[in-house]
Amino acid sequence: MRETNNIFLSIRELVKYKDVYFYLAWRDILVRYKQSVLGVVWILLRPLLLALIFSFIFGRVAGLPSGGVPYAVLSLSGLLVWQFFSDSFMHGSMAFLNNVELVTKVYFPRIIIPASILLCSTLDFLIFFSFLLFAFWAFWGICFSLKILFIPLFFAWLFIFVLSVNILFSSLIVKYRDFKHLVPFVIQLGMYVTPVGYSSLIFKTKWRYILSLNPLSSIIDCFRWSILGQGVFVHGIIISSIVTVLLFIGGLYYLKKTEQYFADVI
């Protein structure tokens, strides 16, 4: 067995260790809901409460536009994406630090640890998403168009973006614990600079360019396009895609470069 720097060998190795990936995700899912009475209800409860607050503050008090849908619907569709990001980022950025014994005592491709955490959040996403579709239809009488078939594509984008951020942060945290303190900050601040509780329509075009440097804002726009039929900003999508690809390559590169020393440094 020689060094596996070759990308094809790396992929083959990933396939070889796919069982570990699923079992780790399965562990996280089991652990998350053991000994919790409300269980799955938590997935829905948090965003619902947040949506309530958003509709009151942004919708009622500040009177921001919602693009022709009820304000709660607008914020819930934003929270669908945001919830996935914040949950996976919170756990995923600590992927290696919280699994020191896996890093120092067994070998498998390290990317499996942050990636398995995303799989766990995917389940939450699916539950929340099906709930939303039902609620939008049942309570707000929203009719969906065929655009909704694009959701898997947008979700894949979201998945890759969050995976890249997690890989980058979790590997940086192995060596520089400073990034650990940055995580809650990013999540807190991120919610304001991402159009979660408001619509990106309120910005002028100039500002939307800057906003799209944050891929999440374009991803949310895309979700709103496919669920609610709101307009998208194509230039923004291009910028966000480029940022995502750069983050993905950067994250993978940094992980590949540093993973062999994780056990020594962590």
């Binding site: 079992y23 780790l24 089991l30 652990v31 053991k34 000994q35 014994e101 005592k105």
Partner: peptide, 26 residues
């Protein structure tokens, strides 16, 4: 290198068998 790598306290014995087995490469 260690017995019970990846054991999770909250999981049952049975669940841990599968988890740990997978981690050890089974």
């Amino acid at each position: 290198l260690e017995v019970g790598t990846g054991f999770h306290e909250e999981l049952t014995g049975k669940e841990n068998i599968f988890l740990n087995g997978a981690i050890l490469g089974m």
